[in-house]
Amino acid sequence: MSSTTPGPRSVDRALEILDVVADAAGPVGAQALARRLGCSLSTVYHLLGPLVARGHLVRAEGGGYAPGPRVAALHRAFQRHVGVAPGVAEVLARLRRESGAEAYFSAYRDGRITVVDSTAPVTDTAHPFVPGPEMRAHATAHGKALLAQVPRGVRRRYLDEHGMARFTDRTITVAERFEAELARVRGRGFAVSVGEADPAYTCLAMVLPGAAEVRHALSVSLPTAEFRHRHGRVRAAVARSVRAFSDAAGNTGA
């Protein structure tokens, strides 16, 4: 083991390489990775070797490195962990058609909220809501819908850990106001975020019935100006999708 790259530091750098390659628009060269990590080119190549060998990365034909086939297997394993039932992709596609808005499937498990799947094109890097860890739960509809269902003590611990950052002038950043907002969410059966996470977008979410340890939500997002003109249609489409998803899960025993 190299004295300049002790175990934990090597692991951290390898994971950073994965993050950089995953977030890039195209293949990333070794020199660019070395600059990003602030380490030598030889260290980067030392870390790239096992990542490529294990299938987490591949060497692109035109040069540089891209995500490898092992990533798909990890994603499927993650979906199993958060309880993604068969047919979620079809439900999201139908919800998008009926609502005219991008659709999302999110999950709460073990104190974490994740956007698991979405109809938003992977090429749309400007879209404000993408699959992955949700760090703006207090400002999103799916975050509100999921947090409204957990015990207050659990919710307080979540907010203490993740904070309540202000993203726009509409973001709720006071715990008491947030509790009042979640009470309204439980009362009306859906959550709405109007420009709280992104000033130009509104999202609406409803939770899916299921086990207490893993909670799921369906949601949509669209420009706020569009939402104001057809919020009834959007809410009805989400409600229909929740019912269809619940019926399908009941029929399969999920």
Rank of each mutant, 00 (worst) to 15 (best):
S3T: 12
T4C: 11
P8H: 10
R9F: 14
S10Q: 09
V11T: 02
E16M: 14
V20H: 00
V21S: 05
A25N: 12
A25E: 10
G29Q: 01
Q31V: 07
R36D: 06
G38W: 07
G38E: 04
C39K: 11
C39N: 10
L41D: 07
L41S: 12
S42V: 00
Y45F: 15
L51W: 02
H56Y: 04
H56K: 07
V58F: 06
V58T: 11
A66E: 05
G68H: 04
H75Y: 08
R76M: 13
Q79F: 10
Q79K: 12
V82P: 05
G87H: 06
V88Y: 09
A89N: 02
L92I: 10
R97F: 02
E98Q: 09
G100E: 06
R109Y: 09
V115F: 04
V116K: 08
S118G: 02
S118N: 04
V122Y: 12
D124T: 14
A126D: 15
A126N: 15
F129K: 02
P133R: 15
R136D: 00
A139L: 13
T140W: 05
T140G: 07
A141W: 02
L147P: 00
A148Y: 02
R156K: 13
Y158R: 11
D160R: 04
E161C: 11
M164P: 05
M164I: 08
T168K: 00
T168V: 02
R170P: 03
T173E: 06
E176D: 15
F178Y: 12
E181Y: 12
A183Q: 15
R188E: 10
G189F: 05
G189H: 06
A191S: 02
S193I: 06
E196C: 03
E196M: 08
P199Y: 03
A200Y: 13
A200M: 13
T202P: 03
L204F: 05
L204D: 00
M206P: 04
P209T: 08
P209H: 08
G210Q: 02
A212E: 13
R215F: 03
H216Y: 09
H216N: 07
A217N: 11
S221A: 11
L222M: 11
L222Y: 04
F227R: 01
A237C: 12
S241E: 02
V242Q: 02
V242I: 12
R243Q: 14
A244I: 03
A244M: 04
A248N: 00
N251T: 11
T252H: 11
